[in-house]
């Protein structure tokens, strides 16, 4: 297993946001996590990426316990997080944003050039915008830059929070198509409001409600589940 989350509890003060979450991701998998706002998806992502310390439970990545490590250490280990809100560097160029994406491997100049070519092939529009300040680009282009920045250090796992936010349906679809291309190098845990879209490209899925995993299974099985259809797919 690439990532194993076991009995994870996270609390803000006395309010428990995650109540014993169990979740697994294998190498080469795209896994969707589905849930309404406030179900705990973003908290789960922030805990895995080291921004929040869990109250209890274990997060094992590539066999190593990583719960409680700092975000810097988590990136170095091979997990990047592309959060909702993007957190780009608005006054820096696209190039410098991507350069900083490679910060943890910064001494490897050739590796950087290769990765830069790699993300430019995935998102050709970024090559055209290479000297533009990130903050002056359209929402969709910024979203692509945020994903590209997270892919720069060749992570083993990408945590992708609401990737279609601010994107047109067509662009959203191409972002999800990209996930299929990268998944052999980079497994993906994706949370998405547009569940039907993310389930189509996912291998497996989890449904989270009020901080607990309610359902899990193969993506097509989850998609066929009558309750999921009613609650998340609007069918």
């Amino acid at each position: 297993m690439l990532l194993e989350v076991k009995d994870l509890h996270v609390a803000y003060g006395s309010y428990e946001v995650l109540r014993g979450v169990n979740l697994e991701i294998d190498y080469g998998e795209i896994v969707s996590i589905i849930g309404s706002n406030g179900a705990g998806k973003s908290t789960l992502f922030r805990t895995i990426s080291g921004f929040i310390k869990p109250k209890s439970g274990s997060i094992r990545f590539d066999g190593e316990e990583i719960a409680g490590k700092s975000p810097e250490e988590i990136v170095t280990i091979g997990i990047t997080h592309c959060p909702e809100g993007r957190f780009l560097f608005p006054d820096l160029s696209v190039y410098k944003n991507l350069l900083l994406g490679y910060f943890t491997n910064r001494r490897d100049k050739d590796g950087f050039k290769k990765r830069l070519e790699y993300v430019f092939e995935i998102f050709p529009v970024l090559r055209e915008r290479i000297n533009q300040r990130a903050g002056t680009m359209s929402g969709g282009e910024q979203q692509m830059l945020a994903i590209a920045r997270a892919l720069m250090p060749k992570p083993k796992l990408l945590l992708l929070d609401e990737p279609s936010f601010g994107l047109s349906p067509k662009l959203s679809w191409s972002v999800f198509e990209v996930l299929k291309e990268i998944k052999n190098d980079t497994a993906v845990l994706v949370s998405e409001q547009n569940a039907s879209l993310s389930l189509k490209v996912s291998d497996r899925a989890y449904v989270i409600e009020l901080g607990e995993i309610r359902l899990s299974g193969k993506a097509d099985e989850v998609m066929a589940n009558p309750e999921v259809k009613k609650a998340y797919l609007g069918i």
């Binding site: 990047t80 957190f87 910060f103 720069m152």
Partner: peptide, 18 residues
Amino acid sequence: IALEAVAQSPIGARLVGI
């Protein structure tokens, strides 16, 4: 560049491992 990055977005900076 990392210094400017921290000034522009401290969270973004931590996301890339600074």
